[in-house]
Design a protein around this nucleic acid. Sequence first.
DNA 1: GATGTGATTGCATAGCTATGCAAAATAGTG
DNA 2: CACTATTTTGCATAGCTATGCAATCACATC
Lengths: 336, 336
Amino acid sequence: MTISVKNVPAAMDVARLAGVSQSAVSRAFTNGASISAKTRAKVMAAAEELGYRPNQLARSLLRGRSQLIGVVLGNMENPFFPLALDTLTKQLDAHGHKTLVFTGEANQQADTSIEDMLNYRVDALILMATTLSSSLAERCQAAGIPVVFVNRISHVKRCSSVIGDNQHGARLIARHLVDNGYQRIAFMAGIETSSTSRDREQAFTDALIALGRSKPMRVVGHFNRTGGMQAMRQLLEQGDRPDAVFCANDHMAMAAIDVARYEFSLEPGKDIGVVGFDDIPQAQWPGYDLTTYSQPLHELIGHAVERVLSQINLDEAVHTVVKGNLILRSSTDANY
Amino acid sequence: MTISVKNVPAAMDVARLAGVSQSAVSRAFTNGASISAKTRAKVMAAAEELGYRPNQLARSLLRGRSQLIGVVLGNMENPFFPLALDTLTKQLDAHGHKTLVFTGEANQQADTSIEDMLNYRVDALILMATTLSSSLAERCQAAGIPVVFVNRISHVKRCSSVIGDNQHGARLIARHLVDNGYQRIAFMAGIETSSTSRDREQAFTDALIALGRSKPMRVVGHFNRTGGMQAMRQLLEQGDRPDAVFCANDHMAMAAIDVARYEFSLEPGKDIGVVGFDDIPQAQWPGYDLTTYSQPLHELIGHAVERVLSQINLDEAVHTVVKGNLILRSSTDANY
DNA sequence: GATGTGATTGCATAGCTATGCAAAATAGTG
DNA sequence: CACTATTTTGCATAGCTATGCAATCACATC
């Protein structure tokens, strides 16, 4: 029975082997430190031999910067989030930061778990979940940790945010639907408490009214597939069916298309118009070919990362809005 | 101009305020430590007032356990991975562990980035990417960090693995296709170097031969959508079209269905059989309704987590195989 | 060779918490 | 109340690295 003795070598061990001081070892691994090429070589050789790697925990403790970024994501069932995570980790990585991840929507459990991330002294927190108690954000603030919201506006003091241009998108979509002659227009909301969903709805409604139409029918899909399907059924079962639906995100729009086509034999783009929001890659799959408003993910994330990494002015909240484009596809393109 | 002084309170500050020693503060936050209810209350009150939270970096440094688990994921475009990450973080969280995540397939860049995770003294590494240099795994090993492969078998000494039953699945699929009268059967491989793809192919081929058939046609889809589409086109453009395709994962199978239906006007299940592997949620979307072999995600991840958290016997590699089921859906269900 | 200059090096300490050990407080018993 | 058994507490240290400071070195210049 062998007890595995985790005898991880420390800087001191390397120092002894290389015949130098521990400081020298530290400097050998610190970029731009004052050390001669010769000793650095000696140190590196010894380090290699022992399999030494500097302990980032100790380093972080001392420096007061952990190089860790906490990321909180919403519903992973929606392809938007994994994609966002992917680009996020890649960009952070390029700047030498690691990502501490948490997935899930807000609840008691989640809050405490996210707060645990603070104990690791994350350098910043990026919140991408659609719902999140803002008391949480406040506590992060209090802990002196910069918070950046992506795709959600928050008025917590000193929290920055990066969002797509919901107003712009909703307006373009309203105009597009009216221009194409759709008459009975519906809106499918996401999670009711989410600012994203509310903003899109508000701007959409305003634009329709400005174009001389009445308020859209309204249904709630909770930003997930099951919810989107139920909401769509609700719309199509009633007597006065809509002839076009703007869904607050692509993920629900795809669910809506499936329901229309396979449960009601309505062909999207021909019998009913469907529009989404986000322009996730799936939106252009031939089975959906969804008209939607794009959220430029790289830009969105890029701004968030920039916010997080710029040491300057983190005291002041910056709210960035990134414009996208209306992407016309066949889910509404009919010559109606 | 206010310089933001990040004056994070330490245990000593709390101790002073509460009129106790620093040890008492530490014990107040350590579960099961020897401390009276009275002093704990005093400490907690003081901690609350100052907004103190124990520094996990220092704690980890001292304890030699960081409570961090490194997770490496492959192509996030495949819904299997986000889903896996979601269940993984939730399960780890339930055990008080945080997840350090890296996404991307193997390359020089990725390797060094993953090695950086070791500097944080992660308690273990879970590797779910389909491709990964095994020299990497070896170096982790050398660093004394337990490595668990999910969905990939590796023969690196002392690395455990958890995989679905590729042989079982491939056999069932072969039998199913033959039973249903399909004649010209093809296999769409994933990434050629991946053990997963190879195992499925080998078992599939063997089973077909055992059933008196010849080796399947073969095409490579690289486990991603673009690759799957191209591979499918390749199959359908040739003179001797297959009448059934087993794709090494659902993600490619969905791409294959789209190509068949929208580019070649072939209706899956009627004109051509398509089978996948994984049973991701999308497989049951009505537009695909894919026959597939299920990989029970919760079980898979559950075993991986168990492997990672059981302190005992991490010296010995354990290889776990989780059986799934053949899920029959309309993409092959035709009365052929 | 003396002197000055800049580059390297080592010493000692800080950063924050957990824990073994001995001292002190408390509870328990007769 | 005396005395033992048990809890609770504080002291001091360890865990690993980065860095200010002073000492040392290498080197060039005169």
